[in-house]
Design a binder for these strands. Structure first.
Length: 508
RNA sequence: GGGCCGUUAGCUCAGCUGGCAGAGCAGCUGACUCUUAAUCAGCGGGUCCGGAGUUCGAUCCUCCGACGGCCCA
């Protein structure tokens, strides 16, 4: 190793404060203390201690002192000459610790007073008391170093507000912004409750491949990777759909999967290249059953998190108790743009509508009726953002629903719905197309688009066709965007605030 | 992809018309054994995101680039 490689690549960047902390760490070592200490067995959580002392907050303290052993990160430090207060933070809360020279001894106190910084992890053995000002406090008999922190933490008043740094250094964000921690506790609770609910409904949770030999199950550009041994390219999945329906063919009647999808697309407050989706499939059921399940699940989650089915979101209050409003895709288009069905199917009319609104028409794609793209564009443009209270939009056109079964009444529309809440698509469900020949025809239409340059159109999956030939029972299936659901339930307007590590451009 | 805005001390932010770079917190030194945004006195700390240009002189003006935010596509 060269001399250059031996040097700490960060040493040139040390700020004055970092140097000071490194020197303190060295002094700890010299005093025989390990700045990166040992496990701290038998410690009590701060919430546990709080619970235990609750009975004594109003009455007096008991005769025998209450002893405790807690550990955490120092987030506030108030030093006096021969004593100091520190506020300790663990995963369950904050607690004040009081350290006096005459309790821990003069030498020990001098070392603590010199070497402790905000940000350090310590363990404290002590006895509980209440200060003059009424603060429940643990008076230290012994302080144990657990881990030295070499960087100053952000300011105690404002915390860390720089959005970029909050996402890039989420570990700091989580330390200093308790409301951020809370969002992720609630996210975990949503996931837990969703699973519990689905399990209770008789679904089994399954895991299907994240690496696909070909992209499928959605319209999106994939990420490509390479398997060295097989010598083939693999695609990070854009949807688990085709695998889950193979499982219904295989005889599972109710399955769900909660996992990541990857789409090689841009970022927005509602899009991250990897995002979490729950897809579920119910044999012998209908889209109507899916909608009822969704309403019930969402209400259940809202009540679990908020104690009521009405949840705040931005300037709105969203009522998540069903039944939700239902509108038809084409009726909404006709009403919004005041068109009859004939004019709504006229490309020229639709293009003129776009021009009037100074919108650029989407590109023409082979293998797909252009009018369907235009209609969808107009729908997204003027209607989606107005759907604030939960609304099922039903009757999507066949042309933009390649895996959905056509409606009995009208072959050009499908038994498909999307759920919008707060102007955002949150779920998409339909009656699965289970006629293998019809599905193959749809795949070949997509293939035409693909060959003419539509990078979102997937190639035909002939093994999936074979599975349909074996026989997929009548099945209804749905995907729910979990990140967006968590946004709704935690009142966060950016997907990045419900993802622990949102995708960022690399630094430098 | 386009438009607008932002990037200044570890953090949060000021910085007027282009003229020596500022505050609070944090840090260091000293005082202080019940504070909790502890207090008091003093001190140190800067690649003003990077590069180029204009200018006697650029944190400030112009151009290019990086990263981020918002809006649009």
């Amino acid at each position: 190793m060269s001399e250059e490689e031996n040097q700490n690549p960060r040493s040139a960047e040390f700020s004055e404060q970092e140097r000071v902390r490194r020197e303190k760490r060295d002094r700890l070592l010299q005093a025989g203390k390990n700045p990166y200490g040992d496990p701290f067995p038998g410690r009590e959580t701060i919430s546990g201690l709080r619970e235990r002392i609750t009975p004594f907050l109003c009455g007096g303290l008991p005769e025998t002192p209450i002893e405790s052993r807690i550990a955490g990160r120092i987030v506030l430090l108030r030093r006096f000459g021969k004593a100091f207060f520190a506020t300790l933070l663990d995963a369950t809360g904050r607690f004040q610790v009081y350290v006096r020279q005459d309790r821990v001894g003069e030498g020990e106190y001098a070392l603590l007073s010199d070497a402790l910084d905000i940000g350090d992890h310590i363990g404290v053995d002590g006895t509980f008391f209440i200060t003059k000002t009424g603060e429940p406090t643990l008076e230290a008999l012994k302080v144990t170093f657990l881990a030295k922190s070499l960087h100053p933490l952000p300011e105690k008043w404002h915390g860390l507000t720089d959005i970029e740094q909050r996402y890039r250094q989420r570990y700091i964000d989580l330390i200093v912004n308790p409301e951020v921690r809370d969002v992720f506790y609630r996210r975990a609770r949503v996931l837990q409750r969703v699973r519990k609910y689905m399990d209770g409904e008789g679904f089994i949770e399954v895991e299907t491949p994240m690496m696909h030999p070909a992209p499928g199950g959605a319209l999106a550009r994939p990420f490509v990777t390479h398997h060295n041994t097989l010598g083939v390219d693999l695609y990070l999945r854009i949807a688990p759909e085709l695998y889950l329906k193979r499982l219904i063919v295989g005889g599972f009647e109710k399955v769900y999967e909660i996992n990541r999808n990857f789409r090689n697309e841009g970022f927005s407050p509602r899009h991250n290249p990897e995002f979490t989706m729950m897809e579920f499939y119910m044999a012998y059921h209908s889209p109507e059953d899916l909608m009822i399940l969704t309403e019930t699940l969402f209400e259940h989650l809202a009540v679990d998190l908020h104690g009521t089915s009405r949840v705040p979101f931005g300037e709105h209050e969203i009522e998540l108790k069903g039944p939700y409003r239902r509108i038809s895709y084409f009726e909404a288009l006709r009403d919004t743009y005041t068109l009859d069905q004939v004019r709504l199917s006229d490309e020229k009319v639709l293009i003129r509508l776009l021009e009037e609104r100074k919108l650029q028409a989407p590109p023409r794609r082979a293998g797909k009726p252009y009018v369907a793209d235009l209609q969808n564009f107009l729908f997204e443009e003027a209607i989606e953002k107005t759907l604030i209270q939960p609304t099922f939009v039903t009757g999507y056109p066949r042309a933009i629903s390649p895996l959905a079964r056509s409606s009995k009444e009208d072959l050009e529309i499908t038994d498909r719905f999307e759920l919008f809440v707060a102007g955002v698509e949150i779920a998409n469900g339909f009656m699965e197309l289970n006629d293998p020949d019809e599905q193959l025809t749809r795949f070949m239409e997509q293939q035409k688009s693909r060959l003419s340059g539509d990078l979102e159109a997937p190639p035909p999956d002939l093994d999936y066709i074979r599975a349909l030939e074996i026989g997929l029972p009548p099945t209804a299936g749905e995907g729910i965007g979990i990140d967006r659901l968590v946004m709704l339930l935690t009142n966060q307007t950016s997907i990045r605030d419900v993802l622990l590590f949102p995708q960022m451009r690399p630094e430098q």
